[in-house]
């Protein structure tokens, strides 16, 4: 036992706990239960160790030891690659795919969570060494709280108004409200679509949102989440029964056409509302300097 042992153990434990808290398996069932989780808990443990070990290294004036953190950065970038590759591989076998933007969003969050774990471990050990175990516990709790805040992004219901709308055919064209979705030729398919399909209109709340929800990846994420939560009326070999989202070019509204197995309007609105807003889809045209200069 050295003078730093307890503080390091504290940092590692608190970092690992923060990873456990952030590793919630929800309706997405990702990371997959058991093995996927073990991978991420192990990586979280490594991240916490690296963060915790950096403090005594600095205390002992071993400044070169900090370069170890660059190894950590490389390691976690690999985590992101690993997640991206796995998800892309399995995405082709989903009835309604996640889409690349959603996958990238998940991969980014896995990488960033490891950094949060590292900071938690670092600050936990630092405060243990600088003050005492009680201060360290307070700091750790604050860290856990901040990590929790940082990991939850905004949801779709915060940026759009969602309302149900009727679906109808005009000749062979399928419409949600006045938004054209696709051309369906066969009468039998039309009957199925009218029977099982549901339509929703997403109205953007401001100018920034128009671009964000127009993003094809964001739209695919909506379809995927709805299909996961409410089921989907389709199979391989029936491409005509594909949930789709199209855009009204005039005002940027989205026409969402879905084929859920649970046909409950309120549930569907709740599910669409809780779809995460993907980081890569967010645009802020209102922040544009050239726009504000002229305006």
């Amino acid at each position: 036992m050295t003078e730093y042992t307890l503080s390091i153990v504290f940092g590692v434990v608190i970092g690992t706990i923060s990873r456990i808290i952030m590793l919630k398996t929800d309706y997405r069932q990702y990371p997959t239960y058991l093995h996927g989780k073990i991978i991420h808990l192990s990586l979280g443990f490594i991240a916490a160790s690296l963060g915790a070990l950096a403090v005594p290294a600095i205390m002992e004036k071993e400044f070169t030891a900090v370069t170890l953190l660059t190894v950590a950065a490389t390691q976690f970038r690999d985590v992101r690659n690993m997640e991206r590759n796995t998800l892309t591989e399995v995405d082709g076998f989903e009835l309604v795919s996640r889409g690349k933007t959603y996958i990238e969003g998940i991969a980014i969050s896995f990488e960033s969570r490891n950094y949060l774990v590292m900071f938690t471990g670092f600050l936990g050990t630092l405060s243990y060494i600088m003050w005492n175990v009680f201060v360290a516990i307070v700091v750790a709790i604050i860290c856990l709280f901040i990590s929790n805040r940082l990991m939850s992004g905004s949801k779709l219901e915060e940026i759009v108004d969602i309302e149900q709308s009727r679906i109808h055919f005009d000749g062979a064209g399928l419409y949600v409200d006045n938004i054209y979705i696709m051309n369906i030729g066969l009468e039998e398919r039309k009957r199925e679509i009218l029977k099982y399909g549901m339509g929703f209109i997403l109205t953007p709340k401001n100018i920034n949102v128009v671009t964000t929800i127009g993003n094809l990846g964001q739209r695919q994420a909506i379809l995927h989440d709805v299909s996961v939560s409410l089921g989907v009326f389709r199979d391989s070999g029936t491409p005509a029964l594909t949930p789709l989202i199209k855009r009204d070019l005039d005002d940027g509204r989205l026409g969402v056409f879905i084929l859920p197995q649970i046909r409950d309007v309120d549930k569907a609105i709740a599910v669409i509302g809780s779809v995460p807003v993907l980081e890569s889809a967010v645009r802020m045209p209102s922040e544009s300097k050239s726009l504000t200069k002229r305006g």
Binding site: A172, N183, I184, G185, L186, S236, G237, T238, P239, A240
Partner: peptide, 24 residues
Amino acid sequence: EYVAANIEAITDGIAHALSEEMFI
């Protein structure tokens, strides 16, 4: 309709109507 439904199922394609008498 019958032929279109069959080819749709066999080829994994979608039957689109261009007019009442023509499907692709």
